[in-house]
Amino acid sequence: MTEFDTDRGSLNAGLAIAGLLAGSVLLLAAGRAPANGHRNGRAAALPPRRSSRKRPTVVAARRLNRAAGVLAASVLADSSVEHYRGSFKNKAMYTPLIVSASTLATSLHGTADARPAAHWFRDATYLTAAVSGLIGTGFHIYNVGKKVGGFSWQNFFYGAPIGAPMAILLSGLLGFCSERVRESRKGTRPEIFQLPAGRTMAAVIGAGLLGTSGEAGLLHFRGAFHNPFMLLPVTLPPLGAALLGRAALAGPGQQHRATRWWMRVLAAMGFAGVGLHAYGVSRNMGGWRNWSQNILNGPPLPAPPSFAGLALAGLAALELMEDHPDA
């Protein structure tokens, strides 16, 4: 007996999850050296690198690329699973897969790239991602509204998730910002649309954390917060957002130790969330043996790392502010 159709689905889901994992590993590996090596003071103890590698704006840009990549990987996996669940009824449902996959590839490129110049192709991809995130949000709102019952709890719970496409928008935005930071001239304040880059990003990332937390809150409310761990993504990230907000408003020369520390907690939570969701899948009837149902009906494995993506971006923004107190 063959299980072709089911297998195709599992292939999608499996590939998506494998992609998520591989993407995260690659991103971490690609960004490893600068991420560990940079830090003022400690950097001096390490062997010397090419100057561009040490240039804080490039380091920040690469970190931001990495963060955008984690987000893109999460979107790739999540939209693959969810749109497979939706049977790709509309051809447009392939869009987030293509866009997030190219965003992921672009972010890998950007993470590895140590040159202090923006790349037109990265810019184009990131902007495409941002725009498609906006369009996707519109689509999802339209789809919820047209279901019988309209904008009701039922359709917010089980219809197209309104907040999901925002993740690819955020990924694109982070990428786009990274290019602006990267290309800023030595000795000048890194800027995004003439605003200080670090603070602008901190604000954007804080808003992203709030939105993502809202979506987790909606879905965890759907699950009646039956497990106390389900409270984490609705409590920790808003706090992180508040800390980032404070950092964005703060004057130059501040350390933001607590904020940085909190971003690490959020990143850990994002990755640990995959494990908790995997446990959630096992709690459903048939457990992992019934994966062809439970991956779809259980908690979404790829969703939590979006918190990690945002938290990594937050770290990058904070460190940029440290290197460029006026940024």
Binding site: R222, G223, H226, R283
Partner: peptide, 24 residues
């Protein structure tokens, strides 16, 4: 509609009036 203790949530198998083998 969500796990509870050792009971699994509903899998929408539709056999409700023939007895629930899921314990939902």
């Amino acid at each position: 509609s969500a796990p509870r203790g050792l009971a699994h949530p509903c899998v929408y198998r539709g056999f409700c009036v023939a007895g629930c083998s899921t314990n939902a």
